[in-house]
Simulated scan of single mutants.
Amino acid sequence: MPPPSPGPRRVLVTGGASGLGAALAAQYAGRGDDVLVTDLAAHADVPAGARYQRLDVTSETDWTAALERVRDECGGLDVLVNNAGVAAGGRIDLLDTAHWRRVLDVNVLGAVHGCRTFVPLFKEQGAGHLVNVASVAGLVHPPAMTSYSAGKAAVVALSESLRAELAPHGIDVSVVCPSFFRTNLAASLRGEDPLVEQVATRLITRAPLGADEVAARVVSAVDARRFLVLPDRAGRLAAWTKRLARPLYDRHMSAAGRRIHRAGQHPTRDTAEETA
Rank of each mutant, 00 (worst) to 15 (best):
M1F: 10
P4D: 13
P4K: 07
G7Y: 07
R9M: 12
R10W: 05
R10P: 07
V11D: 02
T14S: 15
G15K: 02
G16S: 12
G16K: 01
G16P: 01
A17W: 00
G19M: 09
G19H: 04
G21N: 08
A22E: 05
A25M: 06
Q27N: 04
Q27G: 12
A29Q: 05
R31E: 13
G32D: 06
D33M: 08
H43Q: 15
D45Q: 14
A48H: 11
G49M: 11
A50Q: 08
R54E: 10
R54K: 14
D56Q: 05
V57R: 07
D62T: 10
D62C: 08
T64R: 15
A66H: 03
R69L: 14
E73A: 15
C74G: 12
G75H: 10
G76F: 08
V79Y: 01
V79I: 15
V86E: 04
G89L: 05
I92D: 10
L95Y: 04
D96L: 07
R101A: 14
V103D: 06
L104S: 09
L104K: 00
L104E: 08
D105M: 03
N107D: 15
V108F: 12
V108A: 06
G110P: 01
G110F: 03
A111Q: 14
H113P: 03
L121A: 10
F122A: 08
K123Q: 15
E124T: 14
Q125C: 11
A127Y: 05
H129P: 10
L130T: 05
N132T: 10
A134H: 08
S135F: 05
V136F: 01
G138E: 00
V140M: 05
H141M: 13
P143S: 09
P143Y: 06
P143G: 07
M145C: 06
A153T: 12
V156L: 08
A157N: 12
S161V: 13
E165L: 04
L166A: 05
A167R: 14
H169R: 05
I171R: 03
V173C: 10
S174Q: 04
P178G: 05
F180Q: 03
R182N: 06
A187Y: 01
G191E: 13
P194K: 07
L195D: 04
L195M: 11
L195H: 07
V196P: 02
V199Q: 14
A200L: 15
L203H: 01
L203T: 01
I204K: 01
T205H: 13
A207Y: 06
L209D: 15
V214L: 11
V219L: 10
V219R: 13
S220R: 14
S220K: 14
V222D: 09
R225K: 15
L230S: 03
P231H: 09
D232R: 05
D232V: 06
A234P: 00
L237G: 00
A238Y: 01
A239W: 12
K242W: 03
R243V: 00
L244M: 12
A245E: 02
A245H: 13
R246M: 04
R246A: 11
P247G: 08
Y249A: 02
Y249G: 02
D250I: 01
D250C: 03
R251P: 02
G257W: 01
R258T: 11
H261L: 14
G264M: 07
Q265G: 12
Q265E: 14
H266Q: 13
P267L: 09
T268K: 10
R269N: 09
R269F: 04
T271V: 11
